[in-house]
Design a protein around this nucleic acid. Structure first.
Lengths: 210, 210, 210, 210
DNA sequence: AATGAATGAGCCTTCATTCAT
DNA sequence: GATGAATGAAGGCTCATTCAT
């Protein structure tokens, strides 16, 4: 198949195809979240899906493409979950708190997927040894937070942030969120709600004027 | 050799032995920090050390043991760098700030080693797929921070922390520190000093009463 | 379908069937001549024909059978192109020259097909590793040339040929013709006419008395 | 090992290494000559050598490098066998005859190796689909023959050759030689001596003035 | 008549590990 | 102490073939 030409897929055929791709993507998430990036071979994934190895290659031209799909689906799902909630807030402070809360809620409701994406993003490399997903990360991920910080400064409710300290704050928030995901895998019976409240508190305090 | 039975080794042998192990450990750090956990094969490490692959197996019974050594040396070095600085502080607030500052300074001065340890700790797994170094983490790593928080509460200068929220704070601080290391690898010309000050500020604010 | 039992097929089906087979055979020729024997997978052939892989298996019970078809069609086309021209010549010398000329003209006008056949004949093997088409070669291919040589000897215009030296001459002529095809693929803007004249000259001289 | 730095190999170590490489090269020749290029997988070669597949990769960085070695050794052996014999001849006619004779003798004495090289040269392709060894071929192979033809023209004993007809003659001679190799594989009990004499006769006649 | 989906074997390669020297 | 040689398993991928629809 090698779904390179994704335009104009027929409905019925596309259905089975889509179902398989979905299944494979889900098993990939399952496998990575359970065994980690390094152990998640196509063989392992196929075994978990009860299909032959070859069929994965049939639906995805590459292991690379498969992992990319896992990451992309995460981005889309995450954004469509989070964006409306942030936009619904009018104040910068509200937006920041909501950013943290909605992200953590998303993580909580998509534990395995988020964890798998972290594994992929921090391990998958190009042929020349560089992290494949590192580049896109920076601006896509940090800018939204920095924008909120800037907005809060203009509103006069956040303390002063230089461009560096805004970046540090953005990084620290992201690290807290990703770290939550990792902790959640290690310790699934975590009291999520309280955890979320605590993180909201931390960063609310960290950004307030005086 | 298989350095499991380390008792009663002759002095001379021990010296060469030590030198080799040190060399191998250093090249492992170099390799992992440059290529990442997954690409750091014994072959790559040996090539970097200009030695044969076999010699690594001679000095370390396992790849596992080698990586363990990398992690252990980090813990020892880190603790002996940090502990005195914290103990020199008398107040909880001073200790917390110093904890962050000294950790970040250690990271800055041992970038590759710290990064390699993060790679190892977050990737190395046992045969059954569980993270090998996850277990030790908890008490060794988080307790010191939690102790400082408790102390600050008793002093009446930190806000109230439940045992959960202390753990969340400890986690968030560790995530910030480890995240600093990762950012430092991605972006080596980072303005370290300002970054450190900013992180100190964040967590100082996050812990203050009111 | 499995066109092993070709007897008593309905007319209409046979028509579509024929068209498909022709199309597939042509795309096979195209593919092999462009990518070579080893790279000419059914997938590649199907892609070039804009059909599914399965349909090839539907019309040909085997890849083997498909390649056989390519070879067979070549033999038929070649013979029906060449035979009349040779038979039109009365003298042995005329026949020999015509054999070479008409063969080379056929090659020139059917470059890809001839090249594909050479690729197949020299690569396609049975399970036990023997060249599949080697056997048929001998008598079908060499005999006609040897017959002309014998005729020329009887006429007294060719030099003496033992049965071995007739075979060598036949082989050499075939090698020259097949080599022409290969050269033509490597170097499509070859000055064909002059090349043909030159080869005719070579073998005319090589067979003359004194 | 990956023998990229072939300079300054120690004697003793180099010995085993050399022996293995030689053994592997020989088994490769054996395998290709018996099963053909397409069937000659590393697995087949290893089986024939009674060694593990991995060891071939240990001594050769690539299958590509292994095949290149087979080809290179042929070129060196062939040239050192043939060149002196041709240089020993003073006349162009003598050189041409000797060229053919010595080449055929070399083929006869190195049947499998020569056949394997033909298989490799006509099948091994680069990633972009072009024959890997085609380029070097032309000038390295044809020029020597063309030089002899030119020399014979200047001596006044060969007939006139345009640059095209010289190339055609060179091609035809090479095709005759390579074809001899193929015929020899198909038919090992060929009467070699007579075959050689016959080919010498053919091309002697084909080049003579009138 | 045709298709896409699926399989299973085989391919080249990498790797941790073992071992004789 | 150290090395190069060797193994065997596993990895990602390709392919001819089969089959339900």
């Amino acid at each position: 198949m090698n779904t390179k030409n994704k335009t104009n897929e027929q409905k019925e055929l596309s259905f089975i195809e889509k179902a398989r791709r979905t299944q494979i993507v889900e098993c990939t998430i399952e496998t990575i979240s359970e065994l980690g990036y390094a152990q998640a071979s196509l063989g392992q994934i196929a075994k978990r899906a009860n299909i032959s190895k070859g069929i994965i290659s049939y639906h995805f031209s590459n292991k690379e493409e498969l992992l990319e799909q896992v990451v992309m689906e995460y981005y889309l799902a995450c954004q469509s979950f989070i964006s409306p909630q942030i936009e619904a807030e009018s104040s910068a402070r509200g937006k920041l708190i909501k950013y943290i809360e909605s992200n953590l809620n998303f993580v909580n409701e998509n534990r395995k997927h988020v964890f798998a994406v972290i594994e992929i993003v921090s391990n998958e490399r190009t042929e020349d040894g560089k992290l494949r997903f590192a580049a896109e990360h920076d601006e896509t991920i940090f800018l939204p937070i920095e924008n909120i910080l800037r907005m809060g400064m203009e509103e006069g409710i956040f303390r002063e942030f230089s461009s560096l300290s805004a970046r540090v704050m953005a990084l620290t928030i992201r690290n807290a969120i990703d770290g939550f995901s990792i902790e959640l895998m290690r310790n699934p019976q975590l009291r999520v709600k309280d955890y979320i409240i605590e993180l909201m508190t931390i960063f609310d305090r960290a950004t307030q004027k005086i």
